[in-house]
């Protein structure tokens, strides 16, 4: 037998089960949305203008860029009159590689007209429970030696409260000291979704560039992140539908990016025009690889993909 085939077989042998679970998970997710009368869409991976975000770097693709998420095109569809859409696609983010990160990864993204972030959290919960049952998993799953109960009501904790509960400093202090991310990663994330899945929600306004601000409290945005077993799985929010405000936020992000010498992207003008027609809606992006990790009790993202980049 050829040595490189032998090596592939050796490396893949221990992933066989995970690859099967991953495939069935994707099939189950499709079924869920098709049953709910969602339209499955495919938008281009290669785009001229990604949404400028301060901490997300797009890979170049000729004169254009590989998408960092399908958000821009999917919201144009939403604005054009497709009220329930979902997509499972590849996304690319430069320089992201770690236990939970692949530069090329698989994203599930869906949008619902008429929803806000609360309703979307509920739907996300329902979809994941349905997927777990489809996979033949019990309501109590084991992830990294901890039992997680998927069936009891999921936790929803505001970011400010999570800081009070788990961190030595308050959210405001962390923001003022410019170490919000460090505190989040070190003190808060490891405690989220431990016994049951948890939604961390109501992020500081400036950390949600495409989300609507909360009614009655302009200091936070209607944005949430889902955590299971300390792993961040999904990011969702009530969509901002105010075009001038979105343009202002994009220009702010462009300014921050320029200060750090990050690549300048052209503004996604057609997306900004479309925002005028965007219905009140909510959207969410969920990492398929990471959900496959949770359902296969895998410690790292490499365990649920056939070929991490290092062995290509």
């Amino acid at each position: 037998m050829d040595k490189s085939i032998a090596d592939d077989r050796f490396i893949l042998a221990r992933k066989t089960e995970a690859l099967h679970v991953r495939a069935r998970l994707i099939q189950s997710i499709r079924r869920y949305f098709i049953n709910k009368k969602f339209l499955e869409v495919e938008t281009p991976l290669c785009i001229p203008a990604p949404a400028p975000e301060e901490h997300i770097e797009a890979l170049r693709c000729g004169d254009w860029f590989l998408q960092t998420s399908p958000e821009i095109c999917m919201k144009r569809l939403l604005a054009a009159g497709y009220p329930q859409i979902f997509q499972i696609c590849k996304c690319f983010r430069a320089g992201e590689r770690g236990r939970l990160h692949l530069s090329e990864f698989t994203m599930l993204e869906w949008y619902v007209a008429g929803f806000d972030y609360r309703l979307l959290m509920k739907q996300c919960e329902e979809m994941i429970i349905a997927a777990a049952r489809d996979l033949g998993l019990a309501d109590r799953i084991t992830y990294q030696a901890r039992e997680i109960n998927l069936a009891c009501p999921w936790e929803a904790i505001p970011v400010e409260e999570a800081f009070k509960k788990y961190s030595p400093v308050t959210m405001t202090e962390a923001l003022n000291r410019d170490n919000f991310d460090e505190i989040l990663v070190e003190y808060i994330e490891p405690n989220l979704g431990i016994n049951r899945p948890a939604f961390l929600h109501d992020y500081p306004a400036k950390m949600a560039s495409l989300a609507r601000l909360k009614e009655g409290n302009n200091s936070v945005a209607e944005r949430f992140e889902l955590y299971i077993g300390g792993v961040e799985l999904a990011n969702g929010f009530s969509e901002l539908t105010d075009a001038p405000e979105q343009r202002r936020r994009f220009m702010e992000a462009q300014k921050m990016r320029a200060q750090k010498n990050y690549a300048a992207y052209p503004l996604p003008e057609k997306f900004l025009s479309a925002l005028d027609n965007l219905p009140a809606s909510a959207g969410i992006a969920l990492g398929i690889d990471r959900l496959a990790m949770i359902f296969t009790n895998a410690a790292g993202i490499d365990d649920v993909v056939a070929f991490p980049p290092e062995i290509l």
Binding site: E54, E96, R97, G98, F180, E182, M207, E225, N235
Partner: peptide
Amino acid sequence: FNFVKPGKGQALYRCKLKNMLNGNQFERT
């Protein structure tokens, strides 16, 4: 060495370091 990045947040590099002179260890991000 661990690469971490909270959603929409910045890339962070969590490291354990050992002083090669006195063996003292510490963690830093």
